[in-house]
Design a protein around this nucleic acid. Sequence first.
RNA 1: GGCUCCAUCAUCUAACGGUUAGGAUUCCAGGUUUUCAUCCUGGUCACAGGGGUUCAAAUCCCCUUGGAGUCACCA
Length: 432
Amino acid sequence: MLRFAPSPTGDMHIGNLRVALFNHIMSKKRNEPLLVRIEDTDKERNIEGKENEILELLSLFGIEHQEHQLQSNNLKFHRAMALQLLHDKKAFNCFCSAQTLDAKRDAAKEAKIAYRYDGTCSNLHAEEVIDNMAPFTIRLKKPIHSITVHDIIKGESSFAPDDIDSFILMRTDKYPTYNFACAVDDMLSDVSLIIRGEDHFSNTPKQIAIHQALGYDKKIEYAHLPIILNNEGKKMSKRDDASSVKWLLEEGYLPEAICNYMILIGNKTPHEIFTVANAITWFDLATISKSPAHFDIDKLKFINREHLKMMDPKELSRYVGFADEEIGRLAKVFLDEAGTLKELRAKISTIFSPKEVPEEYREGFDVLRELTLKAPHYDDYESYKAYLMQHSGLKGKNLFKPLRILIGGSEHGPELSDLYTHLKNYLKEVVK
RNA sequence: GGCUCCAUCAUCUAACGGUUAGGAUUCCAGGUUUUCAUCCUGGUCACAGGGGUUCAAAUCCCCUUGGAGUCACCA
């Protein structure tokens, strides 16, 4: 079982999408089911509707899952496991208040030393516990030995007990912390491979410590994906437009192209342009680079253009608001100067919109327009051109410039013959 | 600051001890084009620094420097 575990607290981030995509690919490669677990334990931060948004995006990107869970539904298991750990003396009740803890943390920071839980409540007598009516958290006793994480991408890393520390499992409100809920759920779902972002790397020894304390010794494989950096070399955040999957989609990047780029970046692939289905055949987690990768929108655009070129004309025409493959072909002609659906839509739209004509071409434009309105249907551009030349007396620049504006909407653009070929059935509409 | 990880062109990467350090994107120039772009051709640009090991180091080891992630009763 593999799992993708997003929290419904914000817009889908490009890094999340990448994690989901890699899980999907590995699930296919290993022929193991994929679980989508919505991590909704933070009731304050949950946003209504985000869960469905995530699910819709996954399906838009062709990421299939076989199982679905709401983490909050597993609360009874979290509580039972916490009780078990308490009973086994692997965990203890901690009565330290948040204020006390904060003060100690600040003091440590002031003294420039690493903050560690000082063990105040780790060896309380039973009477001290039962007599204490203050709210409490439950903490895991820090492990005795170091914990080594074996990561498919990063290799082996070892963490000392002090760095793992006696961390909190259950909050005063009786709800589990992220690490605890996650560790318990992964165990209960019999997860075999965890693929997630590198920002979870330092949580891994903690989750392993929980598994060890619970006596769970099934081997789980880990793969932590390097962070995606923005232009400044910092982790991509909400501030970066391109970090939002929704934004990329609105800008006119194709899901196929985004997937292609997500697999390409920070990786060695046999080809540069490919589909997810194709990637499943050669994809290998072990080839992924250990260092963070910079997001390069130019490269994405290049890839997007390549996917647009490969797209079925009929499908492309739907994307730009038509249902005629001839318009799809027309759009492909504009691919030379446009790289996204948004740009393509703008190009097509100017063709069908009222034209802005510079004064110097106004006269020629009007003449050509009138002639086109009265013209019989010509199947090829050469005949149409000959007709215009004969009846207008225009030639050279004085013919081509206004003509280009008339049927292309712009002084610059693709070959007029290409334009005409795909537009001839729409000519009267275009010039009206 | 502690912990963990990383280090080849501006960016993504190739090289797995012996190459004029290769490719792609970007950028620039020329050609093509009635036009801009595409396209074609060409060009600029990299082994972070210093020590070792070795006949031989981008590649192995160490140090320095630089970068990233993370250090919550968030996930």
